[in-house]
Amino acid sequence: MKAKSGKRFRWAAIIAVLWLPFFSLPAFAERIKDIASMQGVRGNQLIGYGIVVGLDNTGDQTTQTPFTTQAIGNMLSQLGVNLTTEQATKLQLKNVAAVMVTTSLPAFAKPGQAIDVTVSSMGNAKSIRGGTLLMTQLKGADGQVYAIAQGNILVGGIGATSGNSKVTVNHLSAGRIPGGATVERSVPTAVGQGGFVYYELANSDFGTAQSMVETINKAMGAGTAQALDGRRVAVRTPEDADARIAFLGRLESLEVKTALPYAKVVINPRTGSVVMNQKVTLDPCAVAHGSLSVVVDGAQPGTGQGADIQVNQANGTLMNVKAGVSLADVVKALNALGANPLDLLAILQALKAAGALRADLEVI
C-alpha cells in the first residue's frame, strides 16, 4: 500500500509540474533599450521666438499684439529696410504672426543634423495654417544657440469663417515642421565615466530590475551588473572606448523577462484623440453624462434690441457601466455613454479619480 501511495504521489507531482506553466502569469521579453535609458544620455530643450508669414489674413491683430510689430521692424532693419517709429506702429499685417518655436535636441546630435520643431502662436492669430516660419534661433537654458529653424508649417486642422459664423476642426494655433531645424552646436555627452554606466528603468519595478541584472550577468559574466534600487542598475563597462561601444551595443539588445505591460490611456486634448492599450480594464461604476450649450445671437445694429442668449442643457441620465475585462468590453462600455471624443477626455479623468479606470492616464 505504501508503494502504491508513493507512486500516486509521484504521478500527482509530475502532473502538477506539467500544468504549472499554464496557471502561472505570462512573462514578456523586452529589450533593455526599450525598458531602460542610460543615465546622462538625454535630450535638451530648446526654445526660440520667431515670425510666421504667408497667412491668409489669419495673423495677429497688431493693435493688440505690439510685440509682433516690433519684431517685424527689427527683422526689416536687419535686412536693410529702415522704418521710422511712426511707420512701424502703423503696420497692419494680418498675414504675420508671432510664434514660439520649441524642440528637443537629441543626445549625440551633431551639427548639420535635422530635427523636428513645434510652432505655437503666442498672439491672437486665428490660424497659422499655410504659414512659413522665418529663420529662428533656438537657444538652450544657457542662452547659447544650438539650432536654426525655418520652413513651412504643417497644421493638423482646418477652419472656415464667414461673418459671425466660425467652424474649426482641431487646433489651428500650433503646428510642426518635420526636419525644420538644423543643429548648429552639439552637447558633449560622456558615457561610461569611472568604468560604469547606469541604466534607469522607465517604471520602477524591483522584479524587472533583478531580472535585468540576472540577464546581463548571464550574458556578460558574473558581477557585471548590480541593482542599486528599483529603478537604477549599475553596469561595469570596458575601459577601451571601442570595446565599450561594442559592449553597450550588445547589452541594449539583450531581452529581459518583464511582468505584464502597464495599462495606459493616452489622451490628446488638442485633437481629441484617445488611445488605450489592451491591458486597460474597468470596474463597475455609474456615470451621469450631459451637455450644456450656450447660444448667443448678437444684437443687430439699429434695432434697439439686445443680444438673445439661450442656455440649453441636455437631460443627463445616470448610466450603469459594467465591468470590462478586455479592451473590447471597455470600448463597448464607453460607446454606450454616447460621448464625443472631447467629452470622453473628461469622463476618463473622472473614472480614474473614482478608481474605476484601471490604467494610467497620460496627457500629450
Rank of each mutant, 00 (worst) to 15 (best):
T182W: 02
E252Q: 15
V311I: 14
A227P: 01
I245Q: 12
Q64N: 12
A346C: 01
E255N: 08
T271Q: 03
E214G: 07
I128E: 03
R358A: 12
P106Q: 02
G43Y: 06
R10C: 10
L351T: 04
A263I: 00
V266N: 03
D34T: 13
Q193E: 15
T89P: 00
Y146T: 02
S253E: 14
G156Q: 14
G131E: 09
D308E: 11
Q305I: 08
L254S: 10
V101S: 08
T303A: 05
G324H: 01
G180E: 03
V119S: 03
S120E: 04
Y262H: 04
T58H: 02
V52T: 06
P269K: 07
V235Q: 07
N335Q: 06
V155E: 04
T62K: 03
A190H: 12
G131L: 10
A227Y: 05
Q70A: 13
Q193C: 01
Q137Y: 07
I51R: 05
K279M: 14
A234E: 10
M75L: 15
Q144T: 07
C285D: 11
G304A: 01
A314I: 04
D297P: 00
R176L: 10
V101C: 08
V17S: 08
V213C: 04
G54Q: 12
A356G: 11
P66C: 02
S326F: 00
K33T: 07
S104V: 13
A12V: 10
L348I: 14
N124A: 04
V363I: 14
G54E: 08
K4W: 09
V331W: 00
L46W: 06
G112D: 04
N124P: 13
T62I: 08
M38Q: 14
V197T: 02
M122G: 00
